[in-house]
Amino acid sequence: MKRRKFLGCSAAAGVALLGGGFALLPRGAAPAQTNLAAARELLAGLRGRELISLRGWSPTGVFNHCAQSVEYSLEGYPQLKPGWFRLSLGPAAFAVFGLRGAMRHSLDEPIPGAASLIEPATLAGALQRLEDAFARFAEHRGSLAPHFAYGALDHAEYAQAHVLHLYEHLSLIRPRGDHAAALSADIQSLRG
Rank of each mutant, 00 (worst) to 15 (best):
M1A: 14
M1C: 10
M1R: 10
M1Y: 14
R3E: 14
R4E: 15
C9W: 15
A12Y: 01
A12K: 10
A12M: 06
A13R: 04
A16N: 06
L17M: 07
L18Y: 03
G21H: 04
L24G: 11
R27V: 00
G28W: 12
A30D: 02
N35S: 08
N35G: 14
L36E: 00
A37G: 02
A38T: 02
R40E: 07
E41N: 03
L43V: 08
R49I: 00
I52M: 15
I52D: 03
R55I: 00
G56E: 07
G56W: 11
W57G: 14
T60W: 05
G61N: 12
F63T: 01
H65I: 13
Q68K: 03
Y72N: 12
Y72T: 12
S73P: 03
S73V: 06
L74C: 08
E75C: 01
E75A: 09
Y77D: 04
Y77R: 03
P78S: 10
Q79K: 15
K81W: 13
F85H: 10
F85V: 12
L89V: 11
A92P: 01
A95Y: 07
A95K: 07
G98T: 12
G101Y: 03
R104T: 01
H105E: 14
A115I: 02
A115G: 06
L117R: 02
L117P: 01
I118D: 15
I118Q: 12
P120K: 12
T122W: 04
A124N: 08
A124L: 05
A124C: 02
R129P: 01
R129Y: 05
F137W: 04
E139F: 01
P146K: 02
Y150T: 00
G151W: 03
G151F: 03
G151C: 05
L153E: 13
D154M: 00
Y158H: 14
Y158V: 04
Q160P: 07
H162M: 00
H162Y: 02
H162P: 06
L166T: 03
S171A: 09
I173P: 03
R176P: 15
G177I: 13
D178G: 14
S184V: 15
S184D: 15
A185V: 06
A185W: 06
S189G: 01
R191T: 09
